[in-house]
């Protein structure tokens, strides 16, 4: 990844900042002048990963553009908890239209700015996994193939949380949702379904695709920075644990993001023009159990009727990712 080398050995660039570091080396989130594009008073649940991911991403955009960016938002949790009348939590110019059209709306915003000769103002669009991989998929694919000058953030919490935790095309195998209940012979979400949006994005040949997660703040910011250097369609898929939907402790949100990355279940990588260019190496590899056991949506894999085969099958997904995206450091 394009993280900076930090001449500081206490925590290096793993923490958000440090009193010993130059602010230039610190994450935007650690600075006093951070934009707080998503400000306090929003109605996200305690420990909301999406609120965090959105602030991380948009604050970085605002830093890089000198506060000159417009944000288009799909319907979903993020939209609902930030802009219920009469209060908005956004400090940025922000537009919401529908669930399935955010990429197209963003295209329209970008087109308008071009027509107005204000191409220095940058456009980002954002939505949850439902709007991104399901209902807004067509619009997103269109935005990609036209290479419209929009950076799209997908905040992936792996189900339709706003409507009460129903399965989406991004719901992982075996996860319990309201529409993939723990019932019948194969409880939870079936294996062999769902789509890998970052790979689909790459298949469009767009200039930049990356995955990021809220536990790897500097990596996330570096990817936003990379994306903002480029014009055209760009896609960053951010993993945002959801305490409500996953049945996890609010305090564990960042930890879960970390475990997803460190188990290999959520690979962190970058791709340019359809080819993987880099991946973040796992630092402290953990078996998938470490990640799964903190979430009640996987409770059926543990306890009295523990499902070792199920866990092994999920481990296999992680192992495949590790191989496919070269997530382990090569032996020296």
């Amino acid at each position: 990844m394009t993280t900076s080398t930090v001449e500081f050995h206490q925590t290096g660039d793993l923490t958000a900042g440090n009193r010993l570091q130059d602010e230039q080396q610190a994450s935007r989130q650690s600075t006093q002048q951070r934009f707080n594009s998503l400000t306090a008073g929003h109605r996200a649940c305690q420990g909301c990963g999406e609120a965090l991911g959105a602030r991380f991403a948009i604050d970085k955009v605002m830093e890089l553009t000198g506060d000159r960016a417009f944000v288009v938002n799909a319907t979903g949790c993020l939209e609902v908890f930030t802009t219920p009348f009469p209060e908005s939590s956004w400090n940025v110019p922000w537009l919401h239209s529908l669930f399935g059209n955010a990429p197209a709306v963003a295209t329209g915003v970008a087109a308008a700015l071009r027509a107005q000769g204000k191409s220095d103002i940058r456009v980002v669009a954002q939505g949850g996994d439902g709007s991104t991989v399901d209902i807004g998929f067509g619009a997103l694919s269109g935005m990609f193939e036209r290479n419209d000058d929009v950076l799209y953030f997908c905040y992936d919490n792996e189900a339709y949380m706003n409507t009460g935790v129903q399965r989406s095309g991004a719901t992982p195998p075996m996860a319990r949702t309201a529409t993939t209940p723990i019932a019948g012979a194969n409880p939870g979400n079936p294996f062999g379904q769902g789509k890998n949006m970052p790979l689909i994005a790459m298949a469009h040949g767009i200039p930049y695709v990356a995955t990021a997660t809220i536990s790897h703040l500097r990596d996330l910011e570096a990817k936003v920075a990379k994306a903002m250097e480029i014009r055209g369609a760009r896609y960053i898929h951010i993993h945002v644990p959801c305490p409500l939907g996953w049945g996890s402790e609010p305090a564990d949100t960042v930890k879960l993001a970390r475990l997803a990355a460190e188990s290999g279940l959520f690979p962190l990588f970058e791709a340019e023009h359809g080819e993987v260019t880099d991946s973040s190496k796992i630092r402290r590899q953990v078996p998938v159990e470490e990640y799964l056991k903190l979430q009640r949506r996987y409770a059926h894999l543990f306890g009295k009727s523990a499902d070792a085969e199920g866990i092994a099958a999920i481990q296999k997904i992680a192992d495949t990712n590790i191989r496919r995206f070269k997530l382990l450091r090569e032996e020296e």
Binding site: A16, G17, N18, Q29, A40, G49, A51, R55
Partner: peptide, 14 residues
């Protein structure tokens, strides 16, 4: 030691 983590990870800017 002022690593700024608390400041950064608060979803509520609190």
């Amino acid at each position: 030691f002022e690593c700024d983590n608390c400041y950064a990870v608060c979803p509520d800017n609190a």
